[in-house]
Design a protein around this nucleic acid. Structure first.
Lengths: 153, 153
DNA sequence: AAGAAATAGGTTGCGCACAATCTAATTCGA
DNA sequence: TCGAATTAGATTGTGCGCAACCTATTTCTT
């Protein structure tokens, strides 16, 4: 009954499951984010800022596991859309602090129902969603740990 | 004790867990795929072809949930790397059939150990990996179903 | 058999993601 | 205190991922 012939079938790859489900989530969010003129990555940056305003690029990157190469252009787009301000920190000129504008704060109300709307198509009880989220976050932690191990000085 | 103030914290978002873990997997695979000169998406295309050779672009896309806008340039890169051939189907000139070259087949042996190597940093028993993979695939199915519903004719 | 509809694949444009590299500012160390 | 090392962010180049649109081929309809 084994289908194993040296190579795992694609359907058995956990990494592919994550790869494809994250695209599926992206598409599911798009229908709700398009009317707001936001992409999913822009939306998660705003989620971070709605939780805590006035963060540096580095602090945002730490929370999202993204670097400046990704964030700098994204934040410039959010800035030119009028949702955030970018300003060098007076105390430490290396840092750029990102703060919400009124427009950026106003988006929070419009986006409030999105997680619920997407969540209801999942058909999972809240308890299971919570457990799954935690389990996946734990896996991400292990992957990061091993990555920083193999990139040791 | 509730931290809920209208907006879910980022850490409680299942979608962000998937979004960030798929990037983490991508980075974890990179160290093994770089020596082969492959990206992760190229690797999954080859996984499909190693399972069944001589597929059309459409058939590959159906298995990976990707469209021609993504696959055409990717397959051209795999072609110019010498790993696959692209040829119009004689019976139906609309289709392009993708087949492995000797070089493409030879990669299979070199890539055989990768899933095991990445899997061992996860520290999960095989049974749990299997269950998690299935659960995530089921979620992906629900997201696709609702997407095709909302895009009905 | 002829026009309409459907299908497969390619092209263009935009926005991530990330490695590699750069500059400028700050901190560390002898 | 002064040069070395570190840190924050920006820039460049490559490769997805996908919407929108295009062409060519095939199939459907009558």
């Amino acid at each position: 009954m084994t289908t194993e012939r040296g190579t795992l079938a694609l359907s058995q790859h956990l990494c592919f499951a994550f790869y494809s489900v994250s695209h599926a989530f992206n598409r599911a969010y798009r229908q709700f984010l398009d009317p707001l003129g936001l992409t999913y990555p822009q939306y998660v940056v705003l989620l971070v800022l709605w939780e805590q305003d006035d963060l540096t690029v580095k602090e945002i990157g730490d929370r999202l596991f993204l670097d400046s190469g990704t964030l700098t252009p994204l934040l410039k787009r959010l800035e030119s859309a009028g949702h955030v301000r970018r300003a060098r920190d007076k105390k430490d000129e290396r840092q750029v602090r990102i703060s919400l504008t009124d427009s950026g704060r106003a988006l929070q109300a419009k986006a409030k129902e999105i997680p619920k709307q997407v969540g209801c198509v999942l058909g999972l009880p809240l308890e299971e969603i919570r457990a799954l989220t935690e389990q996946v976050a734990k896996l991400r932690g292990r992957l990061h740990d091993s990555a920083s191990l193999s990139a040791k000085s």
